[in-house]
C-alpha cells in the first residue's frame, strides 16, 4: 500500500546499485528531483509533474526505469 511516490521510494531501496551507499543515492535523487526523499511517508502525495521528475531522476541514478 501507499502512494505512488512512496512505492517508488520503496523500489529505490530494493534496487540500490551495487556498491552505492543509500544516503548518497538519496542525496543525488534529492538534488536531481528537488524532492526531499527523506520526508516521503506512506501517505505523501506529490503532483504529477513532481512524480515525473522523480521517475526521471531515479532512472538516471539507478540506471534503469522502475515500475510502480
Amino acid at each position: 500500500m501507499g502512494t505512488k511516490i512512496f512505492k517508488l521510494k520503496e523500489q529505490v531501496l530494493q534496487n540500490m546499485p551495487a556498491g552505492e551507499l543509500p544516503h548518497v543515492v538519496f542525496g543525488r535523487l534529492m538534488l536531481k528531483s528537488g524532492i526531499l526523499w527523506a520526508l516521503i511517508r506512506e501517505d505523501t502525495e506529490v503532483s504529477q509533474e513532481q512524480f515525473h521528475r522523480a521517475l526521471v531522476a531515479v532512472e538516471e541514478v539507478i540506471g534503469k526505469r522502475l515500475i510502480v
Binding site: H23, V24, G27, R28, M30, L31, G34
Partner: peptide, 9 residues
C-alpha cells in the same frame, strides 16, 4: 541545504 550533505560527503 540540498547540497551540503553531498559536498561534505
Amino acid at each position: 541545504e540540498l547540497a551540503r550533505e553531498l559536498l561534505t560527503e
